[in-house]
Simulated scan of single mutants.
Amino acid sequence: MNSEFTIAVHSLVFLAYRPDRMATSDVIAHNVNTHPSRLRKVMSCLRKQGFIVTKEGIGGGYILNCNPDQVTLAQIYSATSIGSMKPGWCSGKGDDKCVVACNMAEVMDHIFCEAEQHMLVYLQRTTISNVLERVRSSQQQR
């Protein structure tokens, strides 16, 4: 899994925490603890999917454009990270006389695809609001 998913969820939860205020990329990046240019790349993806809207210029920034009760982590994963479970390196064709070497890449592709589908089912059960509730609950326990 790539970090864009975590950055996206963190950013949306931050915006849901302050629903009536715009936040600049610098403010969100500081909260997420990432570089503003990296954050802007992720936010661009979220904007294209309609989760946020932007306003340029003075007083501009990002604001939530979705109901955090209805946006699931599966939707965010699909928008930012689908296919990222599969590692960049995979066994090649290898020795074409060996049944393992000839078939490992295809078998592993199926395994990663199935794992990702199971993860999406799990992520479908959690919304941005659920994550914000967990954050608030963690704060109260301190």
Score class of each variant (00 low, 15 high):
residue 39 L to I: 01
residue 108 M to D: 05
residue 5 F to Y: 10
residue 95 D to Y: 13
residue 105 A to F: 05
residue 70 Q to A: 12
residue 1 M to N: 06
residue 46 L to W: 00
residue 109 D to A: 06
residue 53 V to P: 00
residue 16 A to L: 03
residue 124 Q to N: 15
residue 102 C to F: 09
residue 44 S to M: 14
residue 107 V to G: 00
residue 20 D to A: 14
residue 29 A to V: 08
residue 30 H to G: 04
residue 57 G to V: 05
residue 133 E to F: 10
residue 3 S to Q: 08
residue 81 S to T: 12
residue 4 E to W: 06
residue 23 A to L: 12
residue 111 I to Q: 07
residue 92 G to V: 00
residue 96 D to A: 12
residue 87 P to K: 09
residue 142 R to A: 09
residue 57 G to Y: 07
residue 93 K to V: 11
residue 136 R to Q: 10
residue 104 M to F: 01
residue 53 V to A: 03
residue 97 K to C: 09
residue 108 M to L: 15
residue 107 V to A: 02
residue 80 T to W: 08
residue 75 Q to W: 01
residue 19 P to L: 13
residue 111 I to D: 02
residue 11 S to N: 02
residue 109 D to Q: 06
residue 107 V to N: 05
residue 117 Q to I: 07
residue 74 A to T: 05
residue 119 M to I: 13
residue 11 S to R: 07
residue 106 E to S: 13
residue 74 A to S: 12
residue 23 A to K: 14
residue 71 V to G: 00
residue 99 V to E: 04
residue 41 K to N: 11
residue 118 H to L: 11
residue 89 W to C: 04
residue 24 T to V: 05
residue 37 S to H: 13
residue 98 C to H: 06
residue 99 V to T: 13
residue 3 S to K: 11
residue 106 E to A: 15
residue 6 T to F: 15
residue 79 A to V: 03
residue 33 N to Y: 06
residue 52 I to A: 11
residue 31 N to Y: 05
residue 81 S to Y: 02
residue 16 A to K: 01
residue 56 E to T: 10
residue 16 A to Y: 00
residue 109 D to C: 05
residue 101 A to P: 01
residue 8 A to D: 06
residue 66 C to V: 05
residue 137 S to T: 08
residue 81 S to L: 00
residue 101 A to T: 13
residue 98 C to P: 05
residue 103 N to K: 13
residue 121 V to D: 02
residue 90 C to D: 07
residue 104 M to C: 06
residue 132 L to E: 12
residue 34 T to Q: 05
residue 133 E to S: 11
residue 109 D to H: 11
residue 118 H to V: 10
residue 118 H to M: 09
residue 72 T to V: 05
residue 141 Q to A: 06
residue 113 C to R: 13
residue 68 P to C: 10
residue 130 N to I: 03
residue 7 I to T: 02
residue 89 W to Q: 04
residue 55 K to E: 15
residue 23 A to Y: 04
residue 138 S to R: 15
residue 18 R to V: 08
residue 49 Q to M: 08
residue 64 L to N: 03
residue 69 D to Q: 08
residue 48 K to H: 10
residue 11 S to K: 05
residue 82 I to E: 13
residue 2 N to E: 09
residue 3 S to R: 11
residue 31 N to R: 02
residue 27 V to K: 11
residue 5 F to T: 01
residue 122 Y to I: 09
residue 76 I to C: 02
residue 78 S to F: 04
residue 28 I to P: 01
residue 131 V to M: 04
residue 20 D to E: 13
residue 1 M to Q: 04
residue 61 G to L: 07
residue 33 N to I: 12
residue 109 D to I: 02
residue 91 S to M: 11
residue 6 T to N: 15
residue 57 G to E: 05
residue 128 I to C: 01
